[in-house]
Design a protein around this nucleic acid. Structure first.
Lengths: 256, 256
DNA sequence: CTAGCCTCTTGATCGGAATCAAGGCGCGCC
DNA sequence: GGCGCGCCTTGATTCCGATCAAGAGGCTAG
């Protein structure tokens, strides 16, 4: 908020939905096709980073974007006071490197070891000039990313920690099993602290919520980084049905 | 999160920052120039709506975007359980109408009476095909909007209500006085309930926070919709300095 | 002018998440 | 193999925001 006195920065975007032919096949409209990926490959070089490594820092000059080949990354934003918020997690085939005014808007750090394709902006710029289709794909990504941020806002507006965590699990499942359904197994490569920073909670609370969900037989977890959804019904019921309403109020009112 | 099983929806965007010439003049890069606005005017028609009216609904078929000429609007998202979150407020010269897959992603409703320019998508599409510069402006808007959503996430991750409210005031001031500085007066056209839904709080809490800030002589407010920042120092200190840390701990430790 | 409604405000109580604190486990390093 | 360090978990307590409730002010319509 400070610093970027970007004036009347506000405004919703016109995402040119008309250009986004509804794409009947229902597939990941925000991912590049293999062909598009190939065209990008011509200007890309391979990069490896280790768990904990920082790919680039918030505010640094942006001179490349990255296509994730393997591993998981996180996008982190600093608050003026030093605390941080995690804006999102990125998986293989995601593209990271959003910049504004030539500077990266967030820090991107490896959650696990990762392999990426690095695409210098100058080369990408040249490529996109001649490839309007590819160019357009990037706009779609921007819109989709925005949608994601809006859902994040929606989740953070929920008071109850159980619901936030369950929605997070739903999101992770969706990202790992795009074809859906497959999904009772969810991998969580990130730490409890990471999850907490994404959800606006403390690590302790996240841990406690997992414990409660385990006791309630809604999930099971052989280890902290692997979750199995046991009771799909209640999983979805809690994740989607209530925002800030009171759920457990049987109120038998025995004496009445 | 449900419904749009948009598969691997995740991915950061490459905002083609290189195209966004840093624009030394520091002015609102996300706003159209008068010339661009004129070109758009050729396809626009005027629309008036009253306070409380809904411009369009989440999920409805998107066939136009709107340029706000006067008034204030809000963008609202429904949760599965019926509760809502406000994603943002929009002021004159902002553009609203983000869609995905041809459907509006959120409901937009008038906070006050408003006047807008309506631009049919079909006509806009034709226009943008011949006007690459204008086309590009829309991409910048998308990126800026995304930035805004990320700052919103940042604010919602903060625990203390005072800080959330103060950051909100800072945001409102910034949107009303792009030239900054001018700013000790802040107008709040929206209701306490609106502010609460934006900040993930209840109207009561918002009201109480204002009362506390007033008692602490940090702000003054002749009426609920007008705020004057009295103590700029502390205003900024609280809004920007602490995330979840304990502030009032003078601890004179008298006996020690 | 008054009745009714809506918004804002204030008060009292409750509950749940943060905080403070400590212990267990897995893993790499020595 | 054992030590030390992270990370996760669990417990006790505190505090703050949600909730329930009621009252005040303002605006509109009758």
């Amino acid at each position: 908020m400070p610093g970027s006195r970007a004036a009347s920065s506000r405004l919703a975007i016109a995402a040119r939905p008309f250009l986004a032919r509804p794409d009947g096949d229902g597939a990941r409209r925000d991912l590049l096709t293999p062909q598009e990926r190939d065209r990008l490959a011509s200007i890309a070089s391979l990069v490896r980073i280790e768990r904990g490594d920082i790919l680039f820092r918030q505010g640094a000059e942006a001179n490349a974007i990255y296509d994730i080949a393997g591993g998981v990354l996180k996008s982190v934003l600093q608050r003026p006071d030093g605390t941080r918020a995690i804006l999102g997690f990125f998986f293989p085939q995601d593209i990271v490197g959003l910049a504004e005014d030539g500077r990266y808007v967030s820090t991107v750090q490896a959650v696990s070891g990762a392999v990426l394709y690095r695409m210098p902006l100058r080369a990408l710029e040249r490529l996109l000039k001649h490839d309007r289709e590819l160019d357009h794909q990037f706009l779609l990504k921007a819109c989709h990313e925005l949608r994601g941020a809006q859902l994040h806002v929606l989740t953070l507006g929920i008071v109850r920690a159980e619901i936030r965590v369950l929605r997070f699990l739903g999101l992770m499942r969706q990202m790992q099993a795009p074809e859906a359904g497959l999904g009772s197994l969810i991998e969580l490569p990130m730490s409890r602290a990471d999850i907490a920073e994404y959800l606006g909670l403390t690590p302790e609370t996240v841990s406690r919520v997992f414990a409660r969900l385990r006791r309630a037989q809604i999930i099971a977890s052989p280890n902290p980084h692997l979750i199995r959804v046991v009771d799909e019904e209640r999983f979805l019921a809690i994740a989607e049905d209530e925002g800030r309403v009171r759920p457990p109020a049987p109120r038998v009112s025995a004496a009445d």
